[in-house]
């Protein structure tokens, strides 16, 4: 008995020792601290997929060709599918059910990526999400193929595969606009100026400022720090932006440090107050997005009632 117990239960020290790619799964009896940290991370990711789908949604109808309409619809659908996969991976940790997590999202308690708190104004802004933000997300996700919670890594495999198509489509929209009329190019640049600081903030505060980083890294949930991820992103995407004729704004200042081989961003040039307001789900536009989610979920509550308790009729009227 004693041995078996020892075999199944892991304390934090053992978790840290064993932590490696896809090391733990539903058959391991993980300490609560690990399960909570993993839930927080995966729930955040799942919420981000749903809210990312929300801001892209209007462009299914507004897409300017039949093929683009099909592609945007498929993309939004994929993101809902990613949300579904991720909630399942999070549910496996035994901390929260999917319903709880979806309720938290609709109630404004669920957290999600900063960029998805800003609704998109028009088609010119779409590649800011579909190319740059999705590209940034891809950088982060690629490192999560080596996360220690196996169900998460498994979901990431499928997500990365599909996300690759989304980024290609985003790049195709970007390329079309960048090679359009002068007016197209100007509007594209305006969209880029507006989104660039938000994209830089996508990776969150620098490592020394990040609250949950240490523990998540120690137990192998997170495999790369915010700073390194941002550099990896900029290495690829700065040249791409330039390739499409976009000018990188002077502020926030981005410089390459030859010694560390890293990009450095002048942190004071970024609006961290707004970022923190977003992190608390209190940024007005983001709150608008959450409220929308809340209303649409409430409007279909009757369907869930009908299929979960058939025959019960309208419970609200009783």
């Amino acid at each position: 008995m004693q041995d078996r117990y020892k075999h199944c239960y892991m304390d934090i020290e053992e978790v840290k020792q064993r932590a490696g790619p896809r090391e733990f799964g539903p058959t391991d009896d993980m300490p609560e601290e690990y399960r909570k940290a993993a839930t927080r991370m995966i729930q955040f990711h799942a919420n981000s997929e749903i809210m990312g789908a929300y801001i892209e949604r209007p462009f299914i109808r507004q897409a300017p060709s039949l093929d683009r309409k099909l592609a945007v619809s498929a993309q939004v659908q994929d993101e809902i599918g990613h949300g579904q996969l991720l909630y399942r991976a999070a549910e496996n940790l035994g901390i929260k059910t999917r319903e709880q997590m979806l309720d938290e999202l609709a109630n404004g308690e669920g957290k999600f990526l900063n960029c998805f708190h800003y609704p998109l104004d028009d088609w010119y802004e779409l590649p800011m999400i579909m190319f740059f933000v999705d590209g940034a997300a891809m950088r982060r996700q690629a490192t999560l193929k080596r996360t220690s919670w196996e169900p998460y890594a498994h979901a990431i495999d499928k997500i990365c595969f599909e996300e690759g198509f989304h980024i290609k489509h985003g790049e195709s929209i970007l390329a079309e606009l960048a090679s359009g009329t002068r007016r197209d190019q100007e509007r594209l640049q305006e969209a880029f100026d507006k989104w660039w600081p938000r994209i830089l903030q996508f990776f969150g505060p620098t490592d020394d400022q990040s609250t949950h980083s240490d523990f998540s890294s120690a137990v192998g949930l997170k495999t790369m720090g915010n700073d390194a991820l941002r550099t990896a992103f900029l290495n690829v995407y700065l040249p791409k932006a330039e390739k499409y004729g976009l000018e990188i704004p002077d502020t926030p200042a981005v410089t390459f440090n030859e010694d560390t081989q890293r990009y450095e961003v002048e942190e004071d040039d970024l609006d961290w107050d707004e970022f923190m307001q977003i992190a608390r789900n209190q940024y007005p536009q983001g709150k608008g997005q959450i409220d929308k989610r809340h209303r649409t979920q409430e409007a279909v509550e009757w369907v869930r009632d009908a299929i979960e308790n058939p025959g019960a009729g309208s419970a609200a009227a009783d």
Partner: peptide, 21 residues
């Protein structure tokens, strides 16, 4: 496609998107 992101469940959302496509 009006139902994308608005379906009663995630599964319903995905299914109606399939049909739309």
């Amino acid at each position: 496609t009006d139902w994308q992101c608005q379906g009663p469940t995630l599964e319903a959302d995905i299914a109606i998107a399939n049909i739309a496509q």
